[in-house]
Nucleic acid binder design. Structure first.
Length: 256
DNA sequence: ATGGTGGTTCTACCA
C-alpha cells in the first residue's frame, strides 16, 4: 500500500497538478493539507472519477485536511483530543486496510513572540498524547502530513537562518523527538541519510531553482507500520511544474 | 534592513 502526503496549498487551484500526479504515481492513499476550502467546496467528484474515496475536513480560506483512498475509508475522526475550543481544521484520521492513518497540518507557529507559537507547542503536545494512545491499539499507524518542523540541521540549507524560526526552534524539534522516542519512525530517514533532502521550497527568492528548501513533511510510523515499510521517497518533480504548490509529495510503500 | 511570492478574500491575514 503506497501512502503519500502532500501539502497542496489550495486543492481547487492545484486540482490539475494533483490529478496528474496521482494518475502517474498511483498512490493508494493520499493525505492532503492546506485545502483552503470548505468541506462542501472540495472537488470530490473529480477524485472519485480518478478512483478515490474522500474523507474531508475543510475550513473557509485556511487550513483544511483530507484523506483520499482507493480502499474503503472507515471510522473517520476529525478532532485531535485535548482542546474543545480549537476550531482550526488540521487533523483527520481514519482506518484503511487495517491501518490507522492521519493527515496532519501542524501549526506553523510564527511569529514566535505571538500566541501562535504556544498554540503550535500545545498542538504538538495533543498530537503526542494521541499518538501514544494509538500505540496501545497495536495496529499499524501512519501519522503523515506537514509537521512544520525541521527535524535536524541537515534538513535545511543553513541552520543559522532558521535558528529563531518556529520551524527549527529547540522546543519544536523536541516535540518531533518526543514522537520518535515514543516509538514512531520517520519513514524517509529509514532509506535516505543524505543531507539537504527537502519537501518544501518557498515561493520567494528563487528558493526552488537555488535548491534552498527544508524537510518538514513527514510520514511518522508506529512500530507495526515501520515493520511493513518497503520504501520511502520525496518526489520533487511536482515542485517544478507550472502553478506548483510550495510543497512536494512524500510517499512510502507498506506491505499490507 | 528590506523585500522578495502566492493563496484566499475583500483588505488583511497567512505561510
Amino acid at each position: 500500500m503506497k501512502i503519500a502526503t502532500w501539502n497542496v496549498n489550495s486543492v481547487r487551484l492545484r486540482l490539475p497538478n494533483i490529478l496528474q500526479w496521482i494518475t502517474a504515481q498511483q498512490p493508494d492513499v493520499l493525505l492532503l493539507q492546506e485545502l483552503k476550502c470548505q468541506t462542501d467546496q472540495f472537488p470530490e467528484m473529480e477524485f472519485k472519477s480518478a478512483g478515490y474515496e474522500c474523507a474531508v475536513f475543510g475550513q473557509k480560506a485556511w487550513n483544511g485536511v483530507a484523506i483520499l483512498s482507493k480502499f474503503p475509508i472507515t471510522d473517520v475522526m476529525t478532532t485531535l483530543p485535548g482542546d474543545a475550543a480549537d476550531e482550526q481544521s488540521r487533523y483527520i484520521e481514519a482506518t484503511i486496510n487495517r491501518f490507522r492513518i492521519a493527515s496532519i497540518y501542524l501549526p506553523n507557529g510564527n511569529p514566535v513572540d505571538t500566541e501562535k507559537y504556544p498554540y503550535k507547542l500545545n498542538w504538538c503536545d495533543r498530537l503526542i498524547a494521541h499518538a501514544r494512545a494509538l500505540l496501545a491499539t497495536n495496529q499499524p499507524v501512519v501519522l503523515g502530513g506537514d509537521y512544520n518542523i525541521i527535524p535536524e540541521a541537515r534538513d535545511c540549507f543553513d541552520p543559522a537562518v532558521w535558528k529563531n524560526d518556529a520551524l527549527f526552534m529547540l522546543q519544536s524539534r523536541q516535540k518531533y523527538r518526543q514522537l520518535v522516542n515514543l516509538g514512531y519512525t520517520d519513514a524517509f530517514r529509514v532509506f535516505n541519510q543524505q543531507d539537504h533532502q527537502y519537501s518544501f521550497w518557498d515561493y520567494q527568492g528563487g528558493s526552488w531553482p537555488r535548491n534552498l528548501g527544508i524537510r518538514i513533511d513527514h510520514l511518522m510510523c508506529s512500530p507495526q507500520a515501520a515493520d511493513r515499510l518497503e520504501s520511502c521517497i520525496i518526489d520533487s518533480a511536482p515542485r517544478g511544474e507550472e502553478k506548483a504548490s510550495d510543497h512536494t509529495p512524500v510517499m512510502g510503500s507498506f506491505r499490507v
